[in-house]
């Protein structure tokens, strides 16, 4: 059981990065459906840099930059040029898929050097890893996973305990009011869209550097979209996003696990579970009509001062 849960954490980590990234983007009022594309860009650039330099930090930096670059295109078109966010996000996904296939054309089957893989080896955290049950599940992981924990904690503090985070939420809730109180709406949107994109890029890099350290086409495989749904499930809260991501990580490896236990069920039917669960989540979160857990008020709307 502990082994399964530890594997669920590993499988959920790419989702965690992408979910937190999209959460930050949405909190500032932008619905970027290009998560899948930004993850693919991050996965690809992270892999290229890792393969050629062997340096883990450079690889992660490259992945974050690639995701941020994709997000920048989105910000430019939706914030400055006020285009439709849904269509722009979809385009970013299609563009990212083409980009990763194009850049990765000569790398199919290439393997990350062992040295670099060692940088993402499991590290036991002293004391914490000795906690019964929780220790083996959460604190005997690789450094990338711990980085995910740090991001969750930092973004929670940032969103709910800092002045800048408050301003940013104000932009997402009501851009006109935020503007009236002297907040630079465009700047806030740009910064958080790009930051969110960088996290999505890192999520993609986890897949290509750690999960499967071999380059394969479409390595992300729809996880970006699950992340978009998880933001709703997590009710725009990073801590809940962590739980949601690991829950879905568990669901995604359930099929293989059941088969290895000798349960006779088609792998393809079990593979449907995360997607069906996402739909159930979307329905349930629409039904529960609570005050908290609602999307930011101005989510998806372009802001144009002159049209106020």
């Amino acid at each position: 059981m502990e082994i399964f849960l530890a594997a669920a954490v590993v499988a959920g980590t790419p989702l965690l990065f992408a979910t937190v990234g999209e959460l930050i983007t949405e909190k500032s009022g932008s619905l970027n459906l290009g998560v899948e594309g930004m993850m693919l860009m991050g996965a690809c650039i992270g892999f290229v840099v890792g393969l050629s330099t062997g340096n883990p930090l450079l690889a992660l930096g490259g992945a974050a930059l690639a995701g941020a670059g994709g997000a920048f295109i989105f910000a430019l078109i939706t914030v400055t040029l006020r285009a439709n966010q849904v269509v722009t996000g979809l385009t970013l996904t299609i563009f990212g898929a083409g980009f990763s296939r194009f850049v990765g054309q000569n790398m199919v089957g290439a393997v990350i050097p062992a040295e670099l893989r060692m940088s993402f080896a499991k590290v036991n955290i002293p004391l914490l890893s000795d906690i019964p049950f929780l220790g083996p599940v959460f604190f005997r992981q690789d450094s990338f996973v711990y980085f995910g924990y740090v991001i969750v904690i930092l973004s929670t503090i940032y969103l709910f305990k800092t002045r800048v985070g408050l301003n940013m939420r104000a932009v997402g809730e009501n851009a006109a009011a935020a503007d009236a109180s002297g907040i630079n709406v465009s700047l806030y949107k740009y910064v958080h869209i790009i930051l969110g994109g960088a996290f999505c890029g890192l999520g993609g890099a986890y897949l290509s550097l750690v999960t499967v350290p071999i380059w394969q086409v479409d390595v992300v495989g729809g996880r970006g979209w699950i992340a978009v749904a998880l933001v709703i499930f997590a009710a725009w809260n990073p801590i809940k996003a962590l739980l949601a991501a690991f829950l879905f990580g568990g669901l995604s490896i359930l099929g293989l696990r059941l088969q290895s236990m000798g349960v006779n069920v088609s792998q393809y039917l079990v593979d449907m579970i995360p997607y069906i669960a996402t739909i159930v989540i979307v329905i349930v979160s629409t039904m529960r009509n609570r005050k908290e857990g609602l999307p930011p008020g101005d989510l998806g709307n372009a802001y144009f001062r002159e049209e106020r």
């Binding site: 400055t80 040029l81 285009a83 722009t88 385009t91 299609i94 563009f95 980009f99 296939r101």
Partner: peptide, 25 residues
């Protein structure tokens, strides 16, 4: 030359057309 060149062209065309709507409106 990889087929994916075409998808880069597709993505690029749509990005620019989406952006150009602004100058029409």
């Amino acid at each position: 030359v990889p087929e994916s060149v075409a998808s880069i062209v597709q993505g690029s065309v749509l990005f620019f057309v989406l952006g150009s709507d602004f100058f029409i409106q």
